[in-house]
Amino acid sequence: MSTVTTHPSLTKISTPNAPAAIGPYSQAIVAGSLVFASGCLGFDPQTGGFVGESIEAQARQALTNLKAVLEASGTDMGKVVKATVFMKDMNDFVAVNKIYEEFFGQHKPARSAVEVARLPKDGLVEIEAIAALA
């Protein structure tokens, strides 16, 4: 068993307003003036299940969860520096972009979007971000 502990310069973030981590990781970590948010799926924080089977429903909930984690960290969507969007099917790119724009408006953080073979619990989309605190 590992004896590694979180360094005192880092702060683990956990909020009940987003689904709990489904593995050995934190919802986010604050390091200095940056927040590193783990990938958010389209889970309902109350039930732990997906909010629906459509890409739109899962993308909207993933971004709602990301927003909750960022706010619990002391920042917001307007301070996201970099986002990464993982999709099960790149054919969903346009649909995900539409939902993404609803959350970011005129703010356009740097971003990557990639198709992946599989996401946890067979989700359709997962979104992670790095945000500034100041």
Rank of each mutant, 00 (worst) to 15 (best):
V35P: 02
A28L: 13
L41P: 15
R60D: 10
G52A: 01
L70I: 01
R60N: 09
L63I: 04
A57P: 01
S73D: 00
G49L: 14
A28R: 11
A72D: 02
G23V: 12
P45N: 03
Q58C: 12
G52M: 00
F50E: 04
E53H: 06
E71V: 13
R60M: 02
A31T: 02
G32E: 09
P45D: 05
G23I: 12
T47A: 06
F36E: 06
A28P: 15
Q46R: 10
G52H: 00
L63T: 06
T47H: 05
C40Y: 01
I22V: 13
N65I: 04
G49I: 07
L34Q: 11
F43K: 05
Q61V: 08
F43T: 06
L41S: 15
A28C: 12
T64F: 10
Q46S: 12
Q58F: 11
F43E: 03
E53S: 11
V35K: 03
E53Q: 08
A68N: 07
A37K: 03
S26C: 13
T47N: 07
F50N: 02
V69Q: 07
A28W: 09
S26L: 09
Q58R: 15
Q58M: 12
A28E: 09
G48C: 09
P24H: 15
E53W: 00
A31W: 12
V69D: 07
G23C: 12
A28S: 11
G49P: 02
D44H: 05
N65H: 13
A72Y: 04
E56S: 09
E53K: 10
L66Q: 11
F36C: 08
F50L: 10
V30L: 11
G48T: 09
E56Q: 14
A31Q: 08
S54G: 01
F50G: 03
G23E: 12
T47M: 04
I22A: 14
S38A: 13
Y25K: 14
P45V: 02
I22L: 13
G42R: 09
V51N: 01
G23M: 10
E71Q: 12
E56V: 07
T64W: 04
D44A: 06
S54Y: 00
C40L: 04
G48W: 10
Q61R: 10
A68W: 00
A68F: 00
A57T: 02
L70C: 03
E56N: 13
I55C: 07
G32H: 07
Q61F: 02
S54Q: 02
L34P: 04
G42C: 05
G32W: 04
L41D: 15
A57H: 03
G42P: 08
I55Y: 07
S26E: 13
Y25F: 15
L34G: 07
I29W: 08
S26H: 15
A72L: 03
Q27W: 07
G48L: 11
A37W: 00
P45Y: 07
A57R: 06
S38K: 06
A57M: 09
S33T: 08
L66D: 13
G32L: 07
F36V: 13
S38H: 10
V30S: 11
L34N: 09
P24T: 14
S26Q: 15
A62P: 15
V51D: 01
I29Q: 06
K67V: 00
C40R: 12
